[in-house]
Design a protein around this nucleic acid. Structure first.
Length: 831
DNA sequence: GGATAGCTGTTACC
DNA sequence: ACCGGTAACAGCTATCC
C-alpha cells in the first residue's frame, strides 16, 4: 500500500524480544493509520587512541560474546562494527554495538568496562527519540510511505487498534507539508469536590472542531426547556461511559483540556475506577495511563493514539514569561489571547443548586470547553512549529521545559555532523556542577533619575544566541589553551571564574552547536518580522515563543542538567554580552549622544537634534562593525521617559522606567504598576500618574490626582477589592523560615478548610489591628478578602500609596511624603 | 525595647 | 531539577546597644 502519512503519536512495543515503534497518524484524506516499524538498536563505545589492531580484534571478540540474562529474558550483542566518528567535535574511533532491545543497552554498557574503551554513549536517549533520529520519521511532517497492510502480524496488534489501516513500514519519503487540519476535541469536567476523586463528577462538556460539535453530558437534571447541546444520562457511571463513547466515536487526533493533566483526566480515572465505569479512551481500548510529571509532581496523562494535550502546560513553557496575565487561570489566559472569558457563575455544591441555576451551570461548563478549543486553535500552529523544529512527539513537546527543547533539537541533528551524543550528567556530576559559583551576568547601566525627552532605544537581536553563533562558543569548540602557532581562534575578555582571573579561547572552526543554533535564531528573526508587519496577539505570542527558545540556549549551556553543559562557555557568553553592550554604549557616547540607560542587550540614549534618519544611518554604521551575525536594531523612538531613584537613596533605580512613544503608547517596566504583589489601588494610581506625566506633561494634575486618592483612603471610600494584595505561595506553608503576610493568609485559609497548596496565589488585605494589640508586625493585621474588617488607613497610605508615587514626584522636586505626614497630623488633630 | 543590618521571599527585566 | 544572572523591594529576624 502507498499513501501519505502524518505521524502524530509515538509508542512502542516488544515483539519477539525486539522493539517496534507504533506510530498513529493520518493520511491526506483524514483516515487514521498505524505504522509499525523497527530500526537498528545500538550504542557507541569510544576507543582509546592508537589501539593496536590485535588488541582491537580481541576486544571485539569479547564484546561479541556478551550474553545477557535479565529478568528471564536471554539476549546478546548482535554485531559490532568499527566506525570513524566524532565526539565533542573531535575525531574518534568507536565501536557500534548492536542489540535486539533498547532496554538491554544499559546492561550491555555495564559489561563494557574494558580498559580499551574510553567512553560509552548513546544508550540514554529513549527508544522513541532513538527511532526518530535513526529513521528520520519526524512528528507532524508529511511523508509518502509504502508497505504492506498488516492484519495478523505482531500478535494481532492491528486488530487491537481502532484505526483504518495498519501498515508495516517499508519505505518513506518526506514530502512538502500541506495544511494538515487536525481533529480536536476539547473537554472539561465539573465536580462536587476539587480533591481528585473525592466528589462526584456532575457534568462533562465536549467541544469539537468539526460539524460544530458541542455537548454537555450530565445526570443533574432540571425542568423545562434545555438547550439542545445538553444530553441527560442516568448517573455518574453512565456519564463517564457516555464521555468515553463520544471520544471514541469522534476519535480526535487531540483531546485537549486546561490543567487536564492535573485535574480532569486523573479525576475521570479515579471515579471510573471507583465506579467500575468504562474509560477506555485509547485506540488500544485501554484507559489513560499516568506518570509523574516534571513540575510539582503534577501527573501526565497519556491516552494511546489520541494525543492528550494539557494546553496550560504548553502555555507555561512557551508564553508565560511574556504574558500580561497575572495567573495562568483559564479565565485570564482566555481574556488575554481570545478576548473572551469564562461565564459568570458562582460554583457551589450541586445539591445546593436551584433548578434555574443548573441551566447556567450547563452553559458555564460548555463555555470552558469552547475556550479550551479556541486556545488550542490559537496555539496549534505554534505547537506544530515547535514539534517540527525540535522533532519530539507533540505529546512531549507540550509538556517539556526549555532545556529539553534545546537538547532534543541538538540530539536530532548530531548525525549531520557524524557526532556521538553526549550522555546525561550523572547525579554526582550534577552535584558537582551545582557547587560551582554562578558566573558573572550581564551589565546594567545605572540611570540618572529624571524626565527625558526624545529617546531612542537600540537592542541586539537575540544577543546571547547571536554571540554563541558569531564567536563559535560551545563545549566542543572550547580550546584547552591559547593556540601558539595560529590565529584561528576567538579570545574572550578577561573573566573571573571561581575566583580566578582568566581568558578562554574558542576555535574558529565552526562547531556543531553554534551551527545548529542558527536555525532557531533565523526562526526567531522571521517571526519577529511577521509580528512587526502584522501585530496581533498571536503573531506576538509566536514571536515570543521563539524568542524564549532562542534566549534559552545560553541558559541551557549553563544549566547543570544539560548534556552539553559548560561553565566556561556560559561565563564566556556573558563576558561577550557585557563587552558588546559596553562597547556600543561607548560608540554611542563618542558620537556625541547622551546614554541614559541600558540593560543586557539594550541601550537608551537621547537623540538630541539628530533626525530619525541620521539615527538609522548611525545604527547601520554600528552594525557594519559587529562580527558575524550580530545585529543591533532599533527598538523604537520615544517622546519622553522617566527614570527614578531607588527607594533607599539617590542612585538611579535599574530595571524601572516608563516611556511613551509618538503614538502615545506607554512602555512601563519594573514599576509597581506592573507588579502583581501590589494592590490594585496603588497600581492603577501609579499608572495614571505616569500617564498624566508622560501623556499630558502635567505633573500638577498628577499631584492633584494623588491627593484625591489620599483623601479617598482617609475617608474609607476605597472598595476592599482595590486593596487586595496578591502573593504567590512558592513552597509548602511549613517550609517558610520567615512568616510573611501571605504565609499567614495561607494559614488562615487552611484553618477555614479552604484548600491551599504550593503555587497558589494568596489574596489578603491589611486591616486595622485590635486596639489592645502591641504587635507592629503587618502579618498580625492580615485578613482574607471575605473576612469583614476595616482596612488599615495608615498601612495603605504609607506602604502602598506613598511608595508607588514618591519617587516619581521626586523627579519634579515634589515631596509627597511631607504632604501625607501633614495630612496625618491633620487627621490626628481632628480626633 | 527600639533601631537597623541582613536575610528571606517575591517579582520583574532581559 | 528541569534556561540563568541582575535588580528592586517588602517584611521578617537577629543582633546590637
Amino acid at each position: 500500500m502507498e499513501t501519505q502519512f502524518i505521524p502524530i503519536d509515538y509508542d512502542y512495543f516488544d515483539w519477539q524480544g525486539k522493539n517496534h515503534i507504533k506510530i498513529i497518524g493520518r493520511d491526506s484524506k483524514g483516515k487514521r493509520l498505524c505504522i509499525i516499524d523497527s530500526c537498528d538498536i545500538y550504542l557507541w563505545a569510544i576507543l582509546e587512541d592508537n589501539l593496536k589492531e590485535t588488541k582491537l580484534n580481541k576486544l571485539i571478540k569479547k564484546i561479541q560474546n556478551i550474553k545477557l540474562d535479565i529478568k528471564g529474558r536471554k539476549t546478546k550483542v548482535e554485531k559490532v562494527e568499527i566506525h570513524e566518528k566524532k565526539f565533542l567535535g573531535k575525531p574518534v574511533k568507536a565501536l557500534k554495538i548492536f542489540a535486539t532491545n533498547y532496554k538491554d543497552l544499559h546492561d550491555i554498557a555495564d559489561k563494557l568496562a574494558f580498559p580499551e574503551i574510553k567512553k560509552r554513549r548513546g544508550y540514554d536517549l529513549g527508544f522513541i527519540t532513538h527511532y526518530i533520529i535513526e529513521k528520520k520519521l519526524s512528528p507532524l511532517k508529511e511523508y509518502e510511505i509504502t508497505g504492506p497492510v498488516i492484519i495478523e502480524e505482531f500478535g494481532g496488534i492491528a486488530k487491537s487498534l481502532d484505526v483504518d489501516n495498519c501498515i508495516k513500514l517499508e519505505k518513506h519519503k518526506e514530502i512538502d507539508q500541506k495544511n494538515f487540519k487536525p481533529k480536536i476535541l476539547a473537554y472539561d469536567i465539573e465536580t462536587d469536590d476539587i480533591k481528585i476523586g473525592q466528589g462526584e463528577i456532575i457534568m462533562i462538556s465536549l467541544v469539537g472542531n468539526e460539524n460544530n460539535f458541542k455537548k454537555v453530558l450530565t445526570w443533574k437534571k432540571t425542568s423545562g426547556k434545555i438547550p439542545s447541546y445538553v444530553e441527560y444520562v442516568k448517573d455518574e457511571i453512565e456519564l463517564i461511559e457516555k464521555f468515553t463513547e463520544y471520544v471514541r466515536k469522534i476519535s480526535p487526533d487531540f483531546l485537549t483540556g486546561y490543567f487536564s493533566d492535573g485535574f480532569d483526566l486523573p479525576y475521570l480515572k479515579s471515579r471510573a475506577e471507583k465506579l467500575k465505569a468504562n474509560l477506555c479512551l485509547g485506540l488500544d481500548n485501554r484507559p489513560p495511563k499516568f506518570s509523574r510529571g516534571r513540575v510539582e509532581g503534577i501527573p501526565i496523562g497519556k491516552i494511546n493514539g489520541i494525543v492528550h494535550i494539557d494546553i496550560l502546560k504548553f502555555i507555561r513553557t512557551a508564553y508565560a514569561q511574556y504574558m500580561k496575565s497575572e495567573t495562568l487561570s483559564l479565565n485570564e489566559v482566555a481574556k488575554e489571547f481570545l478576548g473572551d472569558s469564562k461565564k459568570d457563575f458562582k460554583l457551589k455544591h450541586s445539591s445546593q443548586l436551584k433548578k434555574d441555576e443548573l441551566k447556567k451551570y450547563y452553559e458555564y461548563n460548555l463555555h470552558d470547553s469552547v475556550l479550551v478549543s479556541k486556545l488550542f486553535e490559537k496555539f496549534w500552529e505554534d505547537m506544530k512549529e515547535f514539534t517540527i523544529v525540535i522533532q519530539n512527539p507533540i505529546f512531549d513537546i507540550t509538556r517539556a521545559g526549555l532545556s529539553k527543547y534545546i537538547e532534543s533539537y541538538l540530539l536530532h541533528h548530531l548525525n549531520e555532523f557524524n557526532e556521538i551524543p553526549e550522555k546525561r550528567p550523572s547525579y554526582e556530576e550534577i552535584s558537582k556542577r551545582k557547587k560551582l559559583k554562578s558566573v558573572e551576568g550581564a551589565f546594567v547601566f545605572e540611570p540618572k533619575p529624571g524626565l527625558y525627552k526624545k529617546i531612542a532605544m537600540f537592542d541586539f537581536t537575540s544577543m546571547h544566541t547571536s554571540i554563541i553563533i558569531s564567536m563559535n562558543l560551545s563545549k566542543p569548540t572550547l580550546l584547552e589553551e591559547k593556540p601558539k602557532n595560529s590565529k584561528d581562534f576567538y579570545e574572550t575578555p578577561e573573566i573571573i571564574l571561581e575566583g580566578e582571573k582568566q581568558k578562554f579561547y574558542f576555535s574558529k572552526k565552526p562547531g556543531f552547536i553554534p551551527l545548529l543554533l542558527k536555525e532557531i535564531f533565523e526562526k526567531r528573526k522571521k517571526f519577529k518580522k511577521e509580528y512587526k508587519k502584522n501585530p496581533n496577539t498571536i503573531t506576538f505570542a509566536r514571536s515570543n515563543a521563539f524568542k524564549v527558545l532562542s534566549a534559552s540556549i545560553h541558559g541551557y549551556i549553563g544549566f547543570f542538567g544539560a548534556r552539553y553543559y559548560s561553565h566556561e562557555t556560559s561565563a564566556s557568553i556573558l563576558a561577550f554580552v557585557r563587552k558588546f553592550n559596553q562597547d556600543t554604549i561607548k560608540k554611542i557616547q563618542d558620537k556625541g549622544f547622551k546614554v541614559i540607560y541600558g540593560d543586557t542587550d539594550s541601550i537608551a540614549f537621547l537623540t538630541g537634534k539628530k533626525s530619525k534618519k541620521e539615527i538609522k544611518t548611525f545604527l547601520e554604521e554600528i552594525n557594519s562593525e559587529l562580527p558575524g551575525i550580530m545585529e543591533l536594531e532599533l527598538d523604537g523612538f520615544f517622546e519622553k521617559g522617566i527614570w527614578v531613584t531607588t527607594r533607599a537613596g539617590i542612585t538611579g533605580a535599574k530595571k524601572k522606567y516608563a516611556l511613551i512613544d509618538e503614538k502615545g503608547k506607554l512602555k512601563i517596566r519594573g514599576f509597581e504598576t506592573v507588579r502583581r504583589d501590589w494592590c490594585k489601588l496603588s497600581r492603577d494610581m501609579q499608572n495614571k500618574i505616569i500617564e498624566k506625566i508622560l501623556k499630558k506633561g502635567d505633573e500638577k494634575d498628577a499631584l492633584k490626582y494623588f491627593k484625591k486618592i489620599v483623601e479617598k483612603i482617609k475617608n474609607r471610600e476605597v472598595l476592599l477589592e482595590e486593596l487586595i494584595i496578591k502573593t504567590q505561595l512558592k513552597k509548602p506553608i511549613s517550609e517558610y523560615k520567615s512568616i510573611s503576610p501571605h504565609v499567614v493568609a495561607a494559614k488562615k485559609m487552611r484553618e477555614l478548610n479552604i484548600p491551599v497548596s504550593q503555587g497558589n496565589l494568596i489574596t489578603y488585605y491589611i486591616s486595622e489591628s485590635k486596639p489592645d494589640s502591641k504587635s507592629k508586625l503587618i502579618r498580625d493585621k492580615v485578613k482574607l478578602p471575605n473576612q469583614s474588617g476595616k482596612y488599615d488607613i495608615k498601612y495603605y497610605l504609607e506602604r502602598q500609596i506613598l511608595p508607588a508615587a514618591e519617587n516619581i514626584f521626586q523627579i519634579f522636586g515634589i515631596n509627597v511624603k511631607e504632604l501625607i505626614e501633614n495630612k496625618k497630623q491633620m487627621t490626628l488633630g481632628e480626633f
